[in-house]
Design a protein around this nucleic acid. Sequence first.
DNA 1: ACCTGAACACCGTTCAAGT
DNA 2: ACCTGAACACCGTTCAAGT
Lengths: 221, 221
Amino acid sequence: MGAMPSVPRRAAGRPPRISRTEIIDTARRIVDEEGVERLTMRRLAGEIGSTPMALYHHVRDKDELLLLLLDDYAARMMRKPGLPAEPRERVVVVAAAIRAVLAPCPWIAEVLTADDLMSESALWFVEQILDGLAECGLSPERAVHGYRAIWYYTAGEIIVRAAAARRRAGDDRPTYRDRVFAGLDGTELPRLAEVAPQWAPLTAQDTYLDGLRALVDGLTR
Amino acid sequence: MGAMPSVPRRAAGRPPRISRTEIIDTARRIVDEEGVERLTMRRLAGEIGSTPMALYHHVRDKDELLLLLLDDYAARMMRKPGLPAEPRERVVVVAAAIRAVLAPCPWIAEVLTADDLMSESALWFVEQILDGLAECGLSPERAVHGYRAIWYYTAGEIIVRAAAARRRAGDDRPTYRDRVFAGLDGTELPRLAEVAPQWAPLTAQDTYLDGLRALVDGLTR
DNA sequence: ACCTGAACACCGTTCAAGT
DNA sequence: ACCTGAACACCGTTCAAGT
């Protein structure tokens, strides 16, 4: 999606040999093929046929590179959903759209910890959430806090589920949680004992929308 | 919290100069004082007055060390709060207690995103949340989903805020977000443009409890 | 059994210099 | 303005040897 806010200024001097676009495209390929942990500045520079330090002329540091990568991913994946007239439902639909784009991208968890999803392509989504909350009568300040609560919930859901999936992959040994549940004291912890056998299937269910609706209802009451 | 599965066997040979206890105590001090990213095997060994490789005689690798640290931390920090009679308020108080323990120690949240239950010491807290939700009329299944929603929100809040704090520390250069905000189109994104100047202070405010109350209200309506 | 020193194969980033 | 090479200050872990 759109150009970066600060478009590199063409001015006198040596013409650039590598571009931010080339950097991001190559980084994306490495991440897609081998995972985010294999993306290093040195490896990336080598792949481009340049030196690590040339990269620092186009991105501030590795964190910014990861942010740009997330932005790039979001820009090519984000599709604006149709907006319901009812403002609360609009908030739900837009938050769910953000989550739908980010959830299947496994390396994202590490970048998501950036303190907001504040890339260019996400702005429209944030705007819709703020607008929906405002139309429900929230002040601008409370709308921002409401958006943040929704973002916490969404980021948490994505990160926790991604970590669970990562851990589940290729490992049949009983987890630490299995062992804890096995030794559960049903008289001291009756609610847990009651649901313990169902815990795995229950927590595997996708209930993001239910929780999101509860949160939005609570925020706009 | 229980003994480790493999207790070091006392046998013939050279007497140990360092112990697993000393390793964990020192590691905890480093993490408490300077953050988990400063905990390295080399640094830890230096602090103990030994060598990196001596550590590998007492822990399998750095991952195991972090797991041991998590166990240790959970066991000594969790204090049961007083429980209000009103079930919704009970849920709020218990969730806030979990968050209060984990927030100053964000590295733990990143480790424990793998499972939603980190250890035996957390079970009592989960039980109270399930019980509060059940008393509000939720079925056992819906109570588990409600607990998960609260956990997503809590884990997300801790992780996002921790990342923001990390990013903020000692860096005055404008962030990526600053640049995105600077180029904001106020006619297309009026709500965002309105709050943009206030974004940093607004998102720095601690509104965990507000969001939590909204979520719990929404879950128990 | 426990510990050491050296080495391997890496990191991200700064700095000064080149074109 | 853009790029390079060398260097800085680190990593986790393996290996072979010492006590």
